[in-house]
């Protein structure tokens, strides 16, 4: 019961924060992207955390999502809300296609294969000009502002949509983690050979997880396209800015936990923005260098993620209680 109250309180605070920021300002944009990246890292966390398969190619699904809904809107006038589901279907299909050959790989081999897949998608989007507009990118066409058309004058509704997306993806993550599928995944993660001999269809469970993860990532790609309004292949299929960043957010926060991606995003996105803000006037690349140094320090300090900070705080608190 206490847990539910705490959860309700966190969501209430998160719902109030956007109202406190200047609705046309810079920080509401940072907040929207923080929430969006938290949701993306949570989608990644399904395959990366629960199935322990470190994907470095999630930009592939993300970009597919951004392009699918935007092309449907441009060519057929279909609302991005519907386009989002088409994006999810296509992202899930792409995840299935890539997962069948790569899920046999483990560790670094899986990471490299998925990294390559993301890059292939970027190259395809760059050269398939009739469909994607090529390197010039796509602009999301302006439609009269309305919820049904997924078009708003301000960023505030986008912030709330990103918050809702984060809550939904986190709920899906928790539902899977606590259910029978979560138990199967845990068995696979701890010992694949033992999981097989007790009757778990390891390939099927991993495929299912990959498809759900890829579909969610693609749907979030649609949300991104609607906020960003313009994107090109090198942005949405970016290995560094999307694939590696979402993995980094989840890992830095605490991989395999529901809170991890949220904590990771709350740290990484604002700090990165802040560094750009503070140091971009200096030498070129200085802000990225400092940002990198901060990441290294954090990983050395908390190798298993920010989530462990909570555990050690709780342990300290429990000791204090006992002393009294």
């Amino acid at each position: 019961m206490k847990k539910w109250f705490a959860l309700a309180a966190v969501i209430a605070v998160a719902a109030v924060v956007p109202l406190l920021l200047n609705p046309t300002g810079y920080w509401i944009r940072v907040l929207t992207f923080t929430l969006l990246f938290a949701a993306m890292a949570q989608a990644w966390n399904l395959i990366g955390g629960l199935a322990n398969q470190t994907s470095l190619g999630h930009a592939a699904f993300f970009g597919i999502g951004a392009y699918t809904s935007t092309i449907l809107l441009l060519k057929f006038g279909i609302s991005p809300w519907l386009g989002m589901f088409a994006a999810g279907a296509l992202g899930g299909l792409a995840a299935l296609v890539i997962a069948i050959p790569t899920l046999r790989l483990q560790g670094h081999y899986f990471a490299l294969a998925t990294l390559a897949f993301g890059e292939v998608m970027r190259v395809i989007a760059n050269v398939w000009t009739p469909l994607t507009g090529g390197p010039g990118g796509l602009s999301v066409p302006f439609t009269p502002p309305s919820f049904a058309a997924y078009s708003f004058k301000q960023l505030l509704p986008h912030a709330y949509i990103a918050l809702a997306a984060l809550i939904i993806v986190t709920a899906i993550f928790e539902f899977i983690r606590r259910g029978a599928m979560g138990y199967r995944l845990r068995a696979i993660r701890e010992n694949q050979a033992a999981a097989e001999v007790i009757g778990i269809d390891t390939t099927k469970v991993k495929l299912q997880t990959a498809v759900i993860s890829g579909a969610l990532m693609a749907m979030l790609g649609t949300l991104y396209a609607q906020v960003a309004v313009f994107f090109d292949p090198d942005t949405v299929f970016s290995a560094a800015a999307i694939s590696i960043r979402v993995a980094l957010i989840a890992i830095l926060g605490g991989v395999g936990t529901a809170a991890g991606p949220i904590l990771g995003a709350l740290f990484i996105i604002p700090v990165e923005e802040l560094m750009n803000d503070l140091f971009s006037a200096g030498a070129a690349g200085l802000s990225q260098l400092i940002f990198g140094a901060i990441l290294i320090a954090v990983i050395l300090w908390r190798p298993r993620g920010f989530i462990t900070l909570w555990d050690s705080l709780r342990a300290r608190f429990a000791r204090g209680e006992a002393r009294r």
Binding site: A187, E190, N191, A193, A194, V197, I198, G199
Partner: peptide, 16 residues
């Protein structure tokens, strides 16, 4: 396993 065959693989495979 559902048929009634239980396999104890070599090398003590437990869920640690």
């Amino acid at each position: 396993p559902a048929l009634g065959i239980a396999h104890v693989p070599e090398g003590r495979h437990v869920f640690p």
